[in-house]
Amino acid sequence: MSDATINPADAAPVGSDAPAEHMAIPAGYDDGQDHIGLEHHTSTGLSNTKLAMWLFLGSECLLFGGLISTYMLYRNRRADTLGPDQLWDIPFTSATSFILLMSSLTMVLGVQAAKRRDDRNTRLWLTVTALLGGLFLAGQIYEFTVFYREGLGFTTNLFASSFYTLVGFHGAHVSVGIIMLMATVGMLLRNRVHGNKAETVEMIGLYWHFVDIVWIVIFTLVYLIPA
């Protein structure tokens, strides 16, 4: 703490009175700080966390963009090996897409509940969201095993490598989301969330919706557009 010790000599005005007077703070001078509450103390009036989350999501666009581009380049590079057209089960994937879309709805309901400071419903909706996410993941894993049994290993061809990598990265994001959701539910239960609960839930919501919109893109580009 020695750093913080203030040398009285430094603190006293130095030099003549003139500069001190010049620099004196008039009584009642308002530097604008004291009236800014905890929520809006930033220059933009926006939450640091939320800004950071949006920056992160902007950055993630380039990550998924790269993986999607790799897939688009390689999807039908070789006609003589197993390709998307032989494998896709559109009704099944539509169902899992539907589940993920619904989880976005439950997520937003959870965020709304958190804004109302309704902890019980927040926990409920977050749990439902995590379950739906889990269901989606289960669908993915099922789909992967079906493809694998049909002969599409990770190393089979370029399509396989880029497909599994893209969808696997998305699945990893979903898994992280589920962990965050469950951890938040637990922390809400034990009241260990720091700071603004509604904002914490909203951040997880942003992440979750992002995972959802990435899937919207993947579903269309990877599954629906013919190779």
Binding site: T44, G45, L46, K50, L51, W54, L55, L57, G58, S59, E60, C61, L62, F64, G65, G66, S104, L105, M107, V108, G205, L206, H209, F210, D212, I213, I216
Partner: peptide, 28 residues
Amino acid sequence: TVASFFMHLRGDARIFSWMFYAGLFLAV
């Protein structure tokens, strides 16, 4: 739609849209 409503970009401060769509359009 998801970005605007579920993620509240529509009602929220414009800077969030800037951050996100900058990344998106750059990527595209």
